[in-house]
């Protein structure tokens, strides 16, 4: 199994632990990641707001890089997944396509539209498969109740993102069960984390993040886990602000998806960069019952 690896901006900088954990898990599961130092940012939804066609064009360039190498593209961020998938869709509009082609052709770049964009979550569930993952689990996360937090752009608009029901997904929970954790179902799991307005109106973003964390907590979650490093920023790095906004201590450790998979497959906390989180993860990791117990 081989993919063009699209880490996205955050995992290359402040969210480096996500990149670490992804590489560890992919190595353990035999997923080959091919790197392309010419990949640019996906625009994160913000470039799309400022100039839609420009955003399609920079992503068509990214997709063309994978296409030239004959590879499908693997993302580890819900927003990257959404933006690159939307670019694939918008390129089917002849008017958009003509303008994008007009900008790319002079650079010798052509995107024919053949690259499938897929997220690590989907690869683990649909391609590696849950039985294969279950077989490799060395330390089942038994006793750890986890609230999955999907990140909007992995799911919606459902028509474009395909995959699964954008309001009632279950792939992440299925994966959590496969690694021995107890998934917790709560309304907030498919909601927004607040990130898009983090720099528009911080109080609103914090209120939204706080609500989702409180919801997970009310349903018994010891920890949350997300396939999106942008959700991770609001839920973890800005959790102190969320606590202020909702007027409650939250103390909710938030894992990146491959960190939990890595823990179950036998990686150490150091190998997964767990010390880089703002909210400590030790107590959650300690909850995992020793295997055989």
């Amino acid at each position: 199994m081989k993919f063009a690896y699209y880490p996205g901006c955050v995992a290359q900088e402040s969210g480096k632990e996500l990149d670490l954990a992804t590489r560890w898990v992919c190595r353990a599961l035999g997923i080959e990641l091919v790197e392309f130092p010419s990949f640019s940012c996906c625009g994160s939804g913000f470039v799309d707001e400022a100039n839609e066609v420009l955003n399609v064009a920079i992503n068509a360039r990214n997709l063309a890089i994978a296409e030239r190498a004959g590879l499908n593209l693997l993302t580890i961020c819900s927003t990257c997944q959404g933006m690159l998938t939307l670019a694939n869709h918008r390129m089917t509009d002849p008017k958009v396509r003509a303008r994008v082609d007009g900008a790319l052709k002079p650079l010798g770049i052509e995107y024919r539209g053949t690259v499938r964009v897929t997220h690590l979550l989907r690869v683990l569930v649909e391609e590696v498969g849950l039985p294969a993952i279950r077989a490799k689990v060395r330390r089942p996360l038994a006793g750890l109740k986890v609230g999955a937090f999907y990140g909007c752009h992995l799911l919606r608009p459902t028509d474009e993102m395909g995959g699964e029901d954008g309001e009632e997904p279950h792939s992440f929970e299925d994966l959590l069960s496969a690694i021995g954790a107890d998934p917790v179902y709560y309304r907030g799991r498919v909601m927004c984390c607040g990130f898009p307005v983090q720099f528009v109106k911080e109080a609103t973003a914090s209120r939204i993040a706080g609500r989702q964390i409180q919801d997970a907590k009310a349903h018994g979650a010891h920890a949350m886990a997300t396939p999106c490093p942008l959700c991770h920023i609001t839920l973890d790095a800005y959790q102190n602000k969320a606590e202020k906004a909702v007027g409650a201590r939250l103390d909710m450790p938030v894992f990146h998806l491959p960190q939990l998979v890595g823990l179950a497959l036998g990686a150490t906390p150091e190998e997964l960069g767990l010390s880089r989180h703002l909210v400590p993860t030790e107590a959650a990791v300690a909850r995992v019952r020793p295997s055989g117990a």
Binding site: G45, C152, H153, R156, E167, G194, P196, V197
Partner: peptide, 8 residues
């Protein structure tokens, strides 16, 4: 600008 583009 308060839209979260969550697409719900």
């Amino acid at each position: 600008w308060l839209c979260l583009r969550c697409h719900l």
